[in-house]
Amino acid sequence: MTIAPKIKTDLPRIDQDSVLIFDLDNTLYPAACDLFSQVSDLIGKYVRETLKLEPDAAYRVQKDYFHRYGTTLRGLMTEHDVDPADYLAKVHDIDLSVVDPAPDLASALEELPGRKLIFTNASRGHAERVMGRLGIADRFETIFDIVDADYIPKPQQQPYDRLLARDGIDPTRAVYFEDMAKNLLPAKDMGMTTVWVHTDLEWAQHGRDDPRIDHETNDIVGFLRNLATAS
């Protein structure tokens, strides 16, 4: 069922000049898959082994860096000169069997014209594996990952600026889908139409009542099909 308590604009018309930008994790697959728990556990292991800390101390460092730098990786790079490629390879070595193939999502994406991109705080390799598991890899033109963002995560402004510049995107022709409400706000300030893909995860709620969120849904396939019908 689609929920739409905050639709303040008509659905945008999607044509060949439109750009559909999607976050990856908990946006293109259900948050109930809980891949983040696997990643979080591997981050904790990485912090413990790299900094030679006991579990409790490593957990405190992991969360402290996340809150102060936006990602634990950024904190480790800044304070300990950690190799980001090594980190990303190890913390994304997760079991994807909990993610089901998504033929309905693949079909809904295929029905829509325009360009389609992934914009993620994760790595390209992780994105490619998840997209392969979902069966949607061939629906997307490209991926903009944390490396492309120079390891600066959303919602800081720099990744959005880099994405638009790299891929020649007119933000007024773009629709951005994201499960973390706060990550939509810079996109709206730049002129994009914003869609919050609803999740009950507490840390995804910040910013959900901001007027810069145009639409929200808990059924991304249904929302995409409505876009196709409206166009």
Rank of each mutant, 00 (worst) to 15 (best):
G70M: 12
G70V: 13
T71F: 07
T71K: 04
T72R: 15
R74W: 04
G75P: 11
L76I: 10
T78Q: 09
T78C: 07
T78H: 15
D83K: 01
D83S: 05
A85N: 08
A85L: 12
A85C: 06
D86G: 09
D86P: 02
Y87S: 00
Y87D: 00
K90V: 07
V91Q: 01
V91D: 00
V91P: 00
I94A: 03
I94K: 05
S97Y: 00
V98C: 12
V98H: 01
D100W: 01
A102E: 04
A102R: 03
D104A: 13
A106N: 06
A106H: 09
A108Y: 00
L109H: 11
E111L: 06
L112T: 05
P113Y: 08
P113Q: 13
R115K: 15
K116Y: 11
L117H: 15
L117C: 15
I118W: 00
I118F: 02
F119C: 10
T120P: 02
N121C: 14
N121E: 11
N121Y: 10
S123F: 10
H126D: 11
H126F: 13
H126L: 15
E128G: 01
E128S: 07
E128T: 09
M131V: 07
G132T: 13
L134K: 05
G135D: 05
I136G: 01
A137N: 12
D138K: 13
R139Q: 14
R139M: 03
F140H: 09
F140L: 15
E141S: 12
I143C: 05
I143N: 01
D145N: 05
I146Q: 00
I146W: 02
I146F: 00
D148Y: 04
D148T: 13
D148L: 08
D148K: 08
A149K: 06
D150F: 02
D150I: 08
I152C: 11
I152R: 06
I152H: 03
P153V: 04
P155M: 08
P155Q: 10
Q156E: 13
Q156M: 10
Q157S: 07
Q158N: 10
P159W: 11
Y160K: 04
Y160Q: 06
D161V: 11
D161Q: 14
D161I: 14
R162Q: 11
R162K: 13
R162L: 15
L163M: 13
L163R: 03
L163Q: 10
L164A: 14
R166C: 01
R166Q: 09
R166I: 00
R166A: 03
D167S: 13
G168I: 11
G168V: 13
G168Y: 09
I169M: 08
P171F: 04
P171R: 08
P171E: 06
P171Q: 07
T172F: 09
A174C: 10
V175F: 03
V175D: 01
V175T: 15
V175Y: 01
Y176L: 14
Y176N: 05
Y176R: 07
F177W: 01
F177D: 02
E178S: 07
E178D: 12
E178C: 10
D179Y: 02
M180A: 15
A181F: 07
K182M: 11
N183E: 01
L184T: 03
L185P: 00
P186C: 14
K188R: 15
K188G: 05
D189W: 07
D189Y: 11
G191P: 15
G191D: 12
G191A: 11
M192K: 12
M192A: 14
T193G: 03
T194G: 06
